[in-house]
């Protein structure tokens, strides 16, 4: 008996014992999807937020349009457009050598999730950067710091304090919303759960999945509290 069958064995849940290993594999895929897309999305969002604030005017408008569009439409629809819609241009992708990417539901999910969360995170970072007092940048300039150093050492640490909670909420939203990956044939946690239910008609497997998702969200919440304590350790808040 392998380790992933044990929780079901201990709980006396036959479904969980039988599909425990698939659920564990699904959990790994869910975590990969969320971690990779949120991280890529974050780096993308930093650039987008900067260009949105300080880029040339047409670029600012383009980025405003991008964030409005991706925050104003359902992720499910964006995912279907990428997976099914872009998949129809098979000959073109084969010509440019990218067919391996658009053929795979995992990569399509990663792409859809990344561009979606980047739009949300960019808006959060834009708000946080805008909220910083102007004197911070002026003082840094007066000290002779270069723009890049000012951004990394003065602006970002302070903007992250303001944006930390909303960014954590966005990560939690991504964990929850990643469940739709199961609708493009991917066996993430939700996909494995759907499979288990479809074969056993035992509703308790859905409740188990709900508890796993709740646990994931709770872990993120605690990590975020720790991070907040660390980022604000120089401030008197309590």
């Amino acid at each position: 008996m392998s380790w992933c069958e044990l929780p079901g064995y201990w709980l006396g849940l036959e479904v969980l014992e039988r599909y425990g290993c698939r659920m564990a594999d699904g959990l790994v895929i869910t975590m990969q999807l969320v971690a990779i897309s949120s991280l890529l999305g974050f780096f993308l969002a930093v650039g987008l937020a900067l260009l949105r604030l300080r880029g040339p005017r047409p670029v600012r408008w383009a980025i405003a349009g991008y964030t409005t569009f991706f925050r104003g439409t359902p992720l499910l629809c964006q995912l279907f457009l990428i997976y099914y819609g872009l998949g129809t241009f098979r000959l073109f992708w084969q010509d440019v050598g990218l067919w391996w990417f658009f053929r795979d539901p995992l990569y399509c999910c990663l792409l859809a999730f990344t561009i979606n969360t980047a739009a949300y995170q960019a808006e959060i970072l834009r708000g946080s950067l805008q909220a910083l007092p102007k004197g911070q940048i002026e003082a840094a300039r007066a000290l002779g710091m270069r723009p890049v150093a000012i951004f990394i050492k003065v602006e970002m640490p302070q903007a992250l304090i303001i944006g930390l909670r909303p960014l954590g909420n966005e990560l939690i939203t991504m964990i929850k919303v990643s469940a739709i990956a199961s609708l493009v044939t991917l066996f993430d946690l939700m996909g494995a759960t759907r499979l288990a239910f479809a074969r056993s008609f035992d509703l308790s497997i859905y409740l188990v999945a709900a508890l796993i998702y709740l646990a994931l969200v709770e872990i993120v919440r605690r990590i975020w509290n720790q991070m907040e304590a660390r980022l604000t350790r120089h401030m008197v808040l309590r």
Binding site: I172, I180, F197, Y206, A210, Y213
Partner: peptide, 22 residues
Amino acid sequence: TTVFRGVPELLTLYIIYFGGQI
């Protein structure tokens, strides 16, 4: 609030739909 903010909407939908059915 903890439960319904932490569980994916898709999962809630399935639980209500199939659970309600049963």
